[in-house]
Amino acid sequence: MIRFQHVHKRYANGRQALADLSFEVRAGEMVFLTGPSGAGKSTILKLIALIERPTRGEVRVAEQDTARIRRRGIARYRRRIGVVFQDHKLLEDRPVFDNVAMPLVIAGRPRREIDKLVRAALDQVGLLGRERDRPLELSAGEQQRVGIARAVVAKPPLLIADEPTGNLDPQLALEIMMLFKRFNDVGVTVLIATHDHHLIDAAGARRIELTAGHQAEA
């Protein structure tokens, strides 16, 4: 599903975030990306979501060389990936419902279906009944869960998450991890960047360990 081959990423300011990185995540797999802060975890997820482009090397997603996806194709490509952002990226002036519904509205789903799917997604992250609240009226952990609901609401075949449990207490973190596991069980490929070793152990999934843009010796 995801394949990095000799990927280098150097940011405009000259900082080398990834150096000759190669790894693969097969379809239906659930994989953790770990490593210290600044190791390049977010950078990898941004390359997958086409927010950034590699300086060198090849990033393949769903059998597709992402270098071939030009500007006009990016929107369609992104609709097949659910992303949980490290900084949530919620619209603060819109209620929770509108935030979670956004991917469905973009996909042009009918209103009734949107209602149903949004409520189902909010139920899964334990926020049913909070549809009318605004993100700023929610705790950091609740905001994070809105972001998760939005990532999964359209049932994408690939889910990538950047520190999705960073602001959650252990109990809630575990529940969210089980949610990802359930998605994985129904065939969704899941890639999660996280520091949380407890969770990785609990989920019992494969992990890719990074240090300074390289894959650490396993």
Binding site: I74, A75, Y77, K89, L90, I106, R150
Partner: peptide, 16 residues
């Protein structure tokens, strides 16, 4: 701008 960025991240086209 922020709203448009988020739309684009979620797969919204320029036309959208």
């Amino acid at each position: 701008r922020h709203e448009i960025e988020v739309m684009k991240l979620l797969g919204g086209s320029n036309a959208f």
